[in-house]
Simulated assay, not measured.
Amino acid sequence: MSTFTKVLDKWLTVTTAAAIIVMMLHIVTHALARSIFHAPLYGTNEIVEYWYLPIVALLGIPAAQLQKEHITVTMAVERAKPATAAVFTVFACILGALVSVAFAWFGLKKALENTAIGSTADVSAVITWPVYYLVPIVFVLLAVLYILDATAILRRRTEAGEEQ
């Protein structure tokens, strides 16, 4: 794992954990304020739905890629020769990068639309448009990780070919 991926993995883990802890504290404070003082915190449900949960869910995507924890089907790759398996894996990485870039593009368009209209939560004045920018950021990051994986596979194959 390169320094970039190690730092990124640490940052994603810490940020996601912090978002979960802050979300839990927010929800507990809301419940206590509602029960004890009959004064719930304004917009808690919307903040959880439109801020905390997207942060946790979206940051989990590149974190899973970094830690190799995505669901994979290895039936074809396990039975193939190492060179063929490497070609399939590089192809899958390139395809994953292209799909990620497409999601990033769509996400950026949606974020710009929501910025233009000043998007807020359903029935409250809690602003939501800034969170939409997390989608293109996460998917560009995921595309970069796919490209790094493909590059690492190609390097290993080249180094293995030079040793023989």
Rank of each mutant, 00 (worst) to 15 (best):
G43L: 03
L53E: 08
T128R: 09
E49L: 14
A150G: 06
T115C: 06
V87H: 11
N114L: 15
E159T: 07
I117Q: 07
T72Q: 11
T158H: 08
I94T: 08
L141S: 13
A111E: 03
I153L: 02
L112F: 13
S124Q: 01
A64D: 02
R155A: 04
L148C: 13
A63S: 14
L66P: 00
T72R: 12
E69D: 10
L58E: 08
A152M: 08
W105P: 01
T120C: 09
I61S: 00
L95Q: 13
V77D: 00
K110C: 07
V131I: 15
S124L: 03
F106A: 08
W129L: 11
L145N: 03
V135M: 06
Y42F: 14
V101P: 02
R155F: 03
W105F: 11
V99C: 15
L66K: 02
A104R: 01
V138N: 01
G118T: 02
I127Q: 14
G43P: 05
L145A: 02
F106E: 08
P130K: 09
F103I: 15
K68S: 14
T115G: 11
F106N: 07
Y146T: 02
L112H: 11
N114H: 15
F106I: 13
R156F: 11
V77S: 15
E78S: 06
R155M: 03
T89Y: 12
L98G: 15
R157V: 11
T115I: 06
V123E: 13
L145G: 01
K110P: 01
D149F: 07
I153A: 02
A152F: 05
P54K: 03
A80M: 06
S100N: 10
L66D: 00
A152H: 09
A92P: 00
A125L: 07
T44C: 04
Y50W: 14
F106M: 07
A57H: 14
E49A: 14
L145V: 10
L134F: 09
Y50D: 13
T115Q: 14
K109G: 08
T128V: 15
L108K: 09
L53Y: 10
W51M: 10
K81F: 08
V123G: 15
I94L: 13
F91V: 10
P82L: 04
V131P: 00
T44S: 09
A85D: 00
V77F: 03
Y146N: 11
A63N: 13
E49Y: 11
F91M: 10
P136N: 04
W129T: 00
D122P: 04
T128N: 02
Q65P: 01
K109P: 01
A63H: 14
E159N: 05
F106Y: 09
A125M: 08
A121M: 05
E159C: 02
A111V: 05
Y42A: 13
F139M: 03
V77W: 00
V144T: 09
F139K: 00
I94W: 00
V140S: 03
W105C: 06
R155E: 04
F139D: 01
N45Y: 12
T74N: 15
L95K: 13
L154R: 05
Y50K: 12
L134V: 12
T120N: 08
P62E: 04
V87C: 09
G96R: 04
